[in-house]
Structure formats: C-alpha cells, structure tokens
C-alpha cells in the first residue's frame, strides 16, 4: 500500500507492505544505500538511523512505525560531510573497510545529542551495539572525543 515517509527532510511516497523493514525501503525503494544490512536481528548496528532524533535499528523497525516521523540516514547527517563526527572521522582516518561506519556514526550522533562530553565509559556502553569486524574501536572512541571538541568550539 502507499505510505509517505520523510527521509532527510524530503518526503517519499512508497508502495510497500506495511510490515516491510524500514531498512530495505530506505535502500531498495528510496535508493539511499548508505544505511547497511548486517544481521537483520538488531544485533550489529550497521542499519542504525535516526527516527525523531533517537537511534533506531531500521532492520527491525516496520516501515509503518516510521510513518509521520522524521527519519535521518547517514546521507542526511550533513550535505557535505561537515558534521563534527564526519570531520573527526575523516581527520583520524577512522574507517577501514567502512561497511559498519554509517551505523557507527549515526549511533555516535545519537550519543552526542544525549551526552555532549561523553567519557570513554559512556562511549563504550552506548556504542556496544555497533560491531566493527575490522576492530577500529580505538579510533572510533578517539573520533567521538574529537567530534565533541569540534562541536564545543
């Protein structure tokens, strides 16, 4: 059936089943492939998006539950990679294979909106849902601290 979704500020009318996972509607129907599929059971964080500013695992979110809400994906974080997290991620060359990094950055953005100056402990517990098989965790931590510094300037 036809549903209307607001993604990164633009509204899209999509003809999908109500119980379709939001992840695949964003990727296949709307065509924003920055949000990634990693596990399908909300255990790896690669599909993290923002729904009304809160982090959500889009692989286990029904598209019907996101209607009427403001959805933000990695592509919508900033028009030209100038969000403090994107600047910090680039400055520290944080990604290796990069596949999990959209989810890491979106989870980190939700963390920074809750905690302006997170400690290592805050980062560890809040980001524990996001797996990185390349093991870039040290740089992720450093980049979040750096992003907090940039945001505070």
């Amino acid at each position: 059936m036809a549903l209307t979704l607001t993604v990164n500020g633009t509204s899209h009318v999509v003809d999908v089943e109500a119980e379709s996972p939001l992840l695949w509607v964003i990727r296949d129907t709307i065509g924003l492939t920055g949000t990634k599929f990693g596990c399908g059971i909300a255990k790896c964080g690669a599909c993290t998006v923002h729904i009304d500013g809160r982090a959500a695992k889009s692989c286990t979110t029904k598209v019907s539950a996101a209607v009427g809400k403001s959805i933000t994906t990695i592509e919508g974080l900033s028009p030209d990679s100038t969000h403090p997290l994107q600047v910090a991620w680039t400055e520290l060359d944080t990604p290796q294979c990069g596949y999990c990094q959209s989810g890491q950055i979106m989870a980190a953005a939700a963390l920074l909106s809750k905690r302006a100056n997170p400690s290592d402990f805050d980062i560890d517990t809040e980001m524990a849902d996001n797996i990185c098989r390349c093991g870039t965790y040290t740089k992720i931590r450093a980049a979040i601290h750096r992003a907090a510094e940039i945001a505070a300037q």
């Binding site: 959500a56 539950a65 517990t125 524990a128 849902d129």
Partner: peptide, 25 residues
Amino acid sequence: DGVRPPLGARDHSMPEFGASLTDEN
C-alpha cells in the same frame, strides 16, 4: 531504552526499540 551492558557482562546488551515501535505495539 534497551539495556546498556554492565562492566561484568559486556555482551549482555539490548538495543533501544522506543523509536522502532508504536505505543500500541
């Protein structure tokens, strides 16, 4: 809000589903 993993149980965590479910769900 999910469950944030305690120091003694690092892999016992549950993601937050508040934004993924309607109040009715």
